[in-house]
Design a protein around this nucleic acid. Structure first.
Length: 235
DNA sequence: ATGTCCCAACTTTTGGGA
């Protein structure tokens, strides 16, 4: 993480699956590097954070009615940012899948009720593909989560509140995968999914210069199974 | 198509979650 910060010099970072309590989050290390942090931790699972070197105020932890650490919001230099870790769902007949749909609906309600004049970037691990272009082999996902119509509709409903999918807008024809399973040599074989998004309001989207997926971060020693989605915004 | 990784625990192996 700190190597990645040094190399890329981001102003704001949205992190998911920190998998720790607030007490162990490296606030001090990040501060030495010039970054303020807000963390909403839980323990072994979940955990979300926002790290910023351009200010960090008005922190909101948790989604209304949710008791898991999957949402944190803050304002960084006038830009409102959400860091979201959408429930995985596990299987279509698992209670966790119903929880996933409820969670997405709850985020959708919050987005519908927001101040539309407030510049906003909603980012994170959504655990949903928007379309089959986001899936390395749709036949391998028949009957699985991450591709089902209810999830995709729920994701589309978020965009319908006036948000732009920056990754797909800047890369309309290539998969731009963001996640590869640790198993099966999936990364080497190109078996990925695009499930991580940066969604911006239309005015902010117009100020975006470049969007990329940092695939290099998926290589090397003990990588995350996700690669960061990076947006360069002319702020 | 299920080959990894990590963590917790009634811990030295197993189960669960991603």
């Amino acid at each position: 993480m700190s190597e990645w910060l040094s190399e890329h010099q981001p102003d704001v970072v949205l992190i998911q699956e920190t998998k720790q309590r607030d007490a162990t989050f490296p606030f001090a290390d990040l501060e030495r590097r010039g970054y303020e942090s807000a963390h909403h931790g839980q323990g072994q699972w979940n955990g979300v954070a926002i790290v910023s070197r351009v200010g960090l105020v008005d922190v909101q932890r948790g989604l209304d009615g949710d008791d898991e650490a999957r949402f944190i919001a803050a304002t960084c230099d006038g830009l409102r940012v959400y860091s979201c870790y959408v429930p995985n769902g596990r299987a279509l007949d698992d209670p966790h899948y119903a929880y996933k749909l409820r969670w997405l609906a709850s985020l959708g309600l919050m987005l519908r009720e927001r101040d539309q004049d407030q510049p906003l970037v909603v980012g994170g691990d959504f655990n949903v593909t928007r379309s089959d272009l986001d899936v390395y082999d749709p036949t391998a996902f028949v009957g699985a989560t991450h591709v089902s119509p209810p999830e995709r509709s729920a994701l589309e409903a978020l965009l319908d509140t006036g948000l732009v999918d920056l990754g797909r807008t800047w890369h309309p024809d290539e998969p731009a995968f963001t996640w590869w399973d640790y198993r099966n040599g999936s990364f080497r074989r190109g078996w990925g999914l695009r499930i991580d998004y940066l969604l911006a309001d239309e005015r902010t989207a117009q100020r975006v210069r470049e969007v990329s997926v940092d695939r290099d971060a998926r290589k090397g020693e003990k990588p995350s199974d996700h690669a960061p989605v990076v947006a360069d915004i002319d702020w």
